[in-house]
Simulated assay, not measured.
Amino acid sequence: MSTTRVHLLRAVNVGGATLPMARLREIAAGLGATDVSTYIASGNLLCRPPADPDGFDRALEQAIETEFGFFREVISRDPGELQAALDAHPFGTGPDLSDAPYGHIYFLAGTPEPELADAFVARDFGAGERLAVIGRDLHIDYPVGPGKSKLTAASIAKGLGVPGTGRNLRTVAKLIALAG
């Protein structure tokens, strides 16, 4: 039996890319997933995928593109991987996450090359962001919130050589609780 995984979709229900969560659940179930649920309308799908999680992610991407006409990466992690990423967040979290009110983890589709990661985290995006690449996760601290930053999905994908999708620390913690 497969375990619950969290499938994170990049940039849905923003910028005209509308994807109803009820339909996302139906698509996932149609692809063979069980125990399907979503959390908030930003593309957080929790389910037990069929035997091959990566194959399920690619099938989900294709089904969404076919039906809705836009491509969005699907990046999945199991609850242990999410917890490890949250535990590794280097910019303070505290037991209630209050130490990092604008902390985010940007889950990457792969592990960036070390040279790209080093160059990327050394860049200045103009709002005092602190960045760290740990494995296949980009950790971000936005001292004044993400709205003031010039750090974008496009700049991350170009700079690190892999796409991804970000979630704030509270959302990551909630997804861990729901998946566990």
Rank of each mutant, 00 (worst) to 15 (best):
S2I: 02
T4C: 00
R5M: 03
L8V: 13
L8N: 14
L9V: 09
L9Q: 11
R10T: 09
N13P: 05
G15A: 07
G16A: 04
A17G: 06
T18N: 14
L19D: 08
A22E: 12
A22T: 13
A22L: 10
L24M: 09
L24H: 04
R25F: 11
I27N: 12
G32M: 05
D35E: 15
V36D: 01
V36L: 08
S37I: 08
Y39M: 12
A41V: 06
A41C: 06
A41M: 05
G43H: 07
G43P: 07
N44I: 08
L45T: 09
L46H: 07
R48Q: 06
R48S: 03
R48F: 05
A51L: 10
D52L: 11
P53M: 00
D54P: 09
G55M: 12
D57G: 05
R58Y: 12
R58H: 14
L60K: 05
L60F: 10
A63D: 10
A63T: 13
G69L: 10
F70Q: 14
R72D: 08
R72F: 08
E73S: 15
E73T: 14
E73W: 13
E73P: 13
V74C: 15
E81Y: 11
A84R: 15
A84N: 14
A85V: 11
L86T: 12
L86Q: 14
P90N: 03
L97N: 15
S98D: 13
P101N: 13
Y102A: 14
Y102Q: 09
Y102N: 15
Y102S: 13
G103M: 11
Y106R: 06
L108C: 06
L108I: 03
A109D: 03
G110P: 00
T111N: 02
T111F: 03
L116V: 02
A117H: 02
A117M: 00
A119I: 03
D124I: 12
F125L: 07
E129L: 07
R130M: 10
L131Q: 00
V133P: 02
I134F: 01
D137S: 14
D137F: 04
I140N: 06
G145S: 06
P146D: 10
K148T: 10
S149L: 01
S149Q: 04
K150M: 09
L151Y: 02
T152C: 03
A153V: 03
I156D: 02
A157W: 01
K158C: 01
K158Y: 01
G159R: 00
L160M: 02
V162Y: 01
V162G: 05
P163W: 03
G164S: 04
G166A: 15
N168H: 12
T171Y: 12
T171S: 13
T171A: 12
K174F: 08
L175A: 12
L178V: 09
G180S: 13
